[in-house]
């Protein structure tokens, strides 16, 4: 998955699509039983793409499961230039304390909150609060879903909307 995505990123970059960031989901098992940093290093080296093109996404619960191994490997990966995103933010049984301890770049607001826009006032306030918190922690925000937004219907379905650019 990682290798295939890196190969595809190279093909797109060769066609002129530079400056974009591509995200790959990772599981806690990849960090606990394997060396994720090494897998990423190899995929980057084989494809020849810069690390800045790649983002790794892990869910909140995945992050909790990987524990200290996640912290160490995310530090190594970020030192390479890879970005780290938290997936399904706001839905896991997790502690907010990780936000100050972990090297992170992006929070992805779970679709269930995004779907509250514009009809559910409480849900919208949660989204506003997450955005405000993320920005004050110098994190970028990504909203999952967003297919109901009329301007996004062009993308047909499963459109993720970047509230603030990630590059």
């Amino acid at each position: 998955m990682l290798k295939e995505t890196c190969r595809q990123i190279r093909r797109w970059r060769e066609q002129g699509y530079e400056g974009m960031v591509f995200a790959v989901n990772v599981s806690p098992k990849q960090m606990v039983y394997n060396d994720l940093t090494e897998s990423v290093r190899q995929a980057l080296a084989q494809s020849g793409i810069p690390a800045e093109c790649l983002a790794l996404e892990i869910t909140e619960s995945g992050l909790m499961a990987a524990g200290d191994k996640a912290v160490r490997q995310f530090e190594e990966l970020r030192a390479l230039g890879v970005r780290i995103a938290i997936d399904d933010f706001g839905t896991g049984y997790s502690s907010l304390a990780y936000l100050k301890n972990l090297p992170l770049d992006v929070l992805k607001i779970d679709k269930q909150f995004v779907d509250d826009i514009p009809d559910n006032e409480d849900g919208m306030q949660i989204v506003n609060t997450i955005i405000a918190m993320a920005h004050s922690l110098h994190l970028k925000v990504l909203a999952e879903g967003g297919r109901r937004k009329p301007s996004a219907t062009f993308w047909r379905c499963e459109v993720a909307i970047l509230i603030r650019g990630i590059s």
Partner: peptide
Amino acid sequence: VHYQPQVSLASGRIKGAEALV
């Protein structure tokens, strides 16, 4: 691998994509 685009609300441009199996 399918790619789900990520769009900047500020510029309306595609800034990247998420790879999904």
